[in-house]
Amino acid sequence: MNAATGMRRVSVHRLGEVLLASIQQELTDSIAVALRQDLTEMAAAGTRGVIIDISQVEIVDSFLARVLAEIAAATRILAGRTVVCGMRPPVAITMVEMGLGLPGLHTARSLEDALALVEAGEVGR
């Protein structure tokens, strides 16, 4: 919790060599940027992949799409995959209509599928 703004960072959990971030709060731009910093620093300590659960995220706009793409780019340099899971259908429909993509990111319907994709990335190299 940041006392000055009342904002809470997204907590990141390490499951073996996989980093899991589950976004449960209203995501301001500064919380999104803090998540990128946290994930990038933790990934540098060794990771095979990053999973970001966005099932509670109500919108993805161009700023958040860019932050997610930057997380994927940083993770890829460190030889890992970034998988976004649980995107709500209205969010996906809106992104398509805007012309927003998620370059460099893999998507999965569930956390289980996301873990499988990270494992597949390991086998594929």
Binding site: D61, S62, F63, R66, G99, L100
Partner: peptide, 20 residues
């Protein structure tokens, strides 16, 4: 226009909003 950005997004802010 798509792709126009001053560095804070993906260059889809204004044009993307118009499509919605």
């Amino acid at each position: 226009s798509d792709g126009y950005t001053t560095g804070h997004g993906l260059g889809l802010g204004l044009g993307g909003a118009r499509r919605l």
